[in-house]
Every structure is written in structure tokens, then in C-alpha cells.
Computed example of a mutant assay.
Amino acid sequence: MDTPGDVLFARYAFPPNELGYCGPDDPDVLLRHATAAGGTDGGPADEIARRARLFDGAWVYLELIAAAAGITDPLDARVVEAYWIGNDLLDAVDPDVFLSTLRQRFAGQLGGPVAHRWRAMPHAHALAHHSFHVFAVYPWTGLLAVRSATALSVLDSCRIRWGTVTGVDGARVRVRSRPLDWDGRRLRLGADRVESVRWSTGPDFTDPAIRHPPAPGDLVACHWDWVCDRLTAAQLAQLATRTEHQLRAAGG
């Protein structure tokens, strides 16, 4: 893939960082460095790498994927793509090692419904993919029965969504995608809807995470209220397959 791994990480990590959910303070630094980095040695690339290590959740996955693939840099583009989108590097991660590592790193988050899901989930269903963290490690899946509207909104925003751009409105685009649906028993993808998502933070639209405005027909990945990147058809297929896998594992 053409995008350097540090830039790719920043594009996908910026939205929850901006909301204060993970990572260090001053999220605009991450986005600004993503625009300037371009894989250069030192400067922006080093700052992204420093900040990436402060994302307690994502960094563990990146380390595990890199180690299993024999790649020394957790911010290698193939590793970053595997975590956020999905690729064949995920299949090299031993599920036993993966789950054992997460239980050690996230021991404080494993109470109640989260611990139950992990105990009940066959190890073969555990992937070192962002969707696993959303549907298995975060507590929101376990809260669907009691706080369904809030939990469903958080899960849908936090996962990496995919869709097709249908129009551009300044710093926002309209994207046709399939939201999560909860019928009281199963979590699954629902019918198509059109949502409005930002692609830029600047009033003159000159500092996007992706350098040029998305255009109608583009396939894009979204995280919270943010267009992270354009997707190829192969990447979209990977993202959809890995997400569906974790939805089934979570009882969807």
C-alpha cells in the first residue's frame, strides 16, 4: 500500500483521540503530523510514533501483529492496515497468545459481561483486529440489553465503518453505509442509510487527513465522525469480512 504506516495510524486514531477516549492530549498534533509526515525520517513521523505508543489499546494489537509477522516496526503499513482494516497478517497471530496478552494488559477491564464473553468465545474467533476490541473488550456489547440506544450508538461509531460517498458538503460528506442493528437478541448490520461525516477540520478545507476531498462514488472508511481514508475494493472486502466475523463471535 502507498500510505506510510505512521500516517495511516494517525488517520484512524485521530477521531477517538479528538473525543478524549484514548491517546495523549492535543489531538490536533496527531492530525497535523499525519498531513506533514509522509513517511519521512524524524520530525512528524517520530512524533506520531511517540504518540502511537500512548494508545494503550491499539499499540498492544500492533505489537502482537508485528511480532507474529516477523516485522520489527509496529507502525509498518501492513501492520497498521491489519489492525484497522484487516489483511492476512491477522491470520498469523496465535489466538492463545493474543488472548493471554490482552488479559494481562486489560485486566482492569475484564469484569462482568466482558469477562463472560471472553470465557465463552472460542479462541479461533479472536482476531487482533479493531473490531475485536470494540465488540469483545469494550463493555458496550454487554450493555446492549440495558442501555440499548446508547450502547448501539457507541458501538457503531467506534467500529471502522465502510460506505460509498454520495455527496460533498464543504467539510462534510454524505456516505451511504450500513449501521449496526440490535433486535434485542442479536447484533448485526442493518439496512443502508446515508450519514454525514467530516473529512476536514479546517475552515478552508486545506488540512484534511486525506489530502483531497472525497468524491461521489469513493469507497471510504469512517471512524466516529471522521472519514479516515479511501478504500480499495479489496480493503473494503477485508474490513467487511473481519467485522462480520467478530459480529458472529459476539453473538450477532
Rank of each mutant, 00 (worst) to 15 (best):
T3A: 13
L8Y: 00
F9K: 05
A10F: 06
A13M: 07
P15N: 07
P15R: 02
P15M: 04
E18H: 14
C22Y: 12
C22S: 14
G23T: 03
D26G: 05
D26I: 09
P27D: 01
L30N: 02
D41I: 09
P44Y: 10
I48F: 13
A52I: 08
R53Q: 15
R53C: 12
L54P: 06
F55P: 00
G57I: 04
Y61H: 05
L64H: 02
L64Q: 04
A67I: 03
I71W: 07
L75C: 08
D76Y: 02
A77S: 11
V79R: 01
E81I: 05
E81S: 10
A82L: 09
A82W: 01
Y83P: 01
W84L: 01
W84H: 01
I85Y: 00
I85H: 00
L89A: 03
D91R: 10
D91G: 05
D94W: 01
F98K: 01
F98Q: 02
F98M: 05
L99F: 06
S100A: 13
L102Q: 04
L102R: 03
R103H: 13
R105M: 11
F106M: 02
G111R: 11
V114I: 08
A115N: 08
R117G: 04
R117C: 06
W118Q: 05
P122A: 08
H125Y: 07
H125K: 10
F132Q: 02
V134T: 01
Y138S: 14
Y138D: 14
P139Q: 05
T141H: 14
G142Y: 03
R147S: 15
T150W: 15
A151N: 07
S153I: 11
L155S: 00
D156N: 15
S157T: 13
C158Q: 07
R159G: 02
V165C: 10
V165S: 03
V165W: 01
D169C: 13
A171F: 09
R172E: 09
R174T: 10
V175L: 05
S177W: 05
S177I: 08
R178P: 01
R178M: 04
D181G: 13
G184V: 05
R186S: 15
R186L: 14
L187F: 04
L189H: 09
A191S: 15
A191V: 15
D192S: 12
S200H: 13
T206C: 11
I210F: 14
R211I: 11
R211E: 13
R211W: 12
L219N: 09
D225T: 11
D225M: 14
V227Q: 03
V227A: 03
T232W: 08
A233H: 12
L236Y: 07
L239A: 06
T241S: 07
H245P: 00
A250E: 03
A250T: 04
